[in-house]
Design a binder for these strands. Structure first.
Lengths: 196, 196
DNA sequence: CTGGTATTAGTACCAAGTGCTAAAAAAACT
DNA sequence: AGTTTTTTTAGCACTTGGTACTAATACCAG
């Protein structure tokens, strides 16, 4: 199993990336070297110790959490909102959002951004999507910053519906547009159950 | 600042929930009690120590990560597929897919399942969604198993389009349906760029 | 054989704890 | 007030998963 130092370090990096929860001891036995060697390797590669790694992962998660909870679980980041009028969000397309094959964003991410923005713009405890028509106008690639704007186009108070138009652009070019019909529970704080 | 033990423990729980990265020492000075008291409190409330808390947060994150990667390929699990004809997938709705407020699944997850099934059923290297009309017929809750069926309804070879109908059911009741117009690159391995 | 790199060993020390015992202090009865 | 109970504090040994540092080997090349 013994290979060069370089090879071991390559594998080490990989292993830790793969599972940041592994201890030096486990790594040592896995590579058939001493714990000290692993430590030296980590130093050279400037890989932090287990706890720091875990803390890092946790901190990331935590940031995401505090970012997504107050925003009521929105895909993308809301940068401007006028309830019952319009809302704006940005969403940075990353590698994980695209087809590996061609680097084009998967449709459901754009839909998700639009849909959650439509939910957010509604001035109510909760809103559900009833219907939507969407058009994927132009492919979106990794690295693109998608700016999505939701505009309330109409309301039907009797039916508790709001009609929203959503347009997403990248560099001022429309990449996605859609209409959303949303159901909501009218009065804020109203505990009305969604129509079952 | 001194209140009863109960009150302190209530606040303690809150504080830790709010920021799991806080040490006993910090808590002690914050509440003006000794570290030991904090430890006792944690025992009684069965709140784990800092490192375990952090590990927990990190593990969650990690799960999400490894969950969202395959989640990138296809949302839901494909259980049957006849290329260019039909496909069937199941998707178990979990807590993380619903609005906390009312336990109803967020629309984009259902859309994602439908959309990725539409992509999958197409017998081509790649397919992109051009348009879709969807209807959220009935709320879906955590714990529901959504069975989604995609059926190819038509093709337009000149325009490289395929029209797909998708219906999702829970316990044989329709919860979602949609039509998807898909663009694809006909020949397999064709490196044709999507209309730019 | 002599250098230089690589590896291993060993020690002291740290953070943030657990587990346990014991003693004070405060609160609650009777 | 006197006693019992609860709550709080203190102290010590021990644990994990390390860091920092020193020193000894091992190995490989010229």
């Amino acid at each position: 199993m013994k290979r060069t130092k370089k090879e071991r370090q390559r594998l080490l990096t990989e292993t830790i990336e793969d599972n940041p929860f592994v201890t030096d001891e486990q790594l040592a036995s896995q590579f058939g070297v001493s714990v000290q060697t692993i430590r030296l390797d980590r130093m050279e590669l400037s890989i932090p110790e287990l706890r720091e790694r875990i803390k890092g992962v946790a901190a990331q998660n935590y940031e995401n959490e505090v970012k997504s909870l107050p925003l009521d679980e929105v895909i993308g980041e809301i940068i401007d909102i006028e309830l019952d009028q319009r809302a704006l969000s940005i969403f940075d397309v990353k590698e994980e959002h695209v087809f590996q094959r061609n680097g084009i964003a998967r449709g459901h991410h754009l839909f998700a951004q639009a849909n959650s923005l439509a939910v957010a713009v509604i001035n109510d405890e909760l809103a559900l999507t009833v219907k939507s028509n969407v058009v994927f106008v132009k492919p979106v690639k990794a690295g693109d910053r998608v700016i999505t704007k939701a505009t309330v186009r109409g309301k039907n108070s009797e039916k508790n519906r709001t009609y929203i138009e959503v347009v997403s652009t990248v560099n001022n070019e429309t990449v996605f547009k859609g209409e959303f019909e949303m159901y909501h529970t009218k009065g804020s704080g109203d505990n009305h159950e969604a129509s079952n």
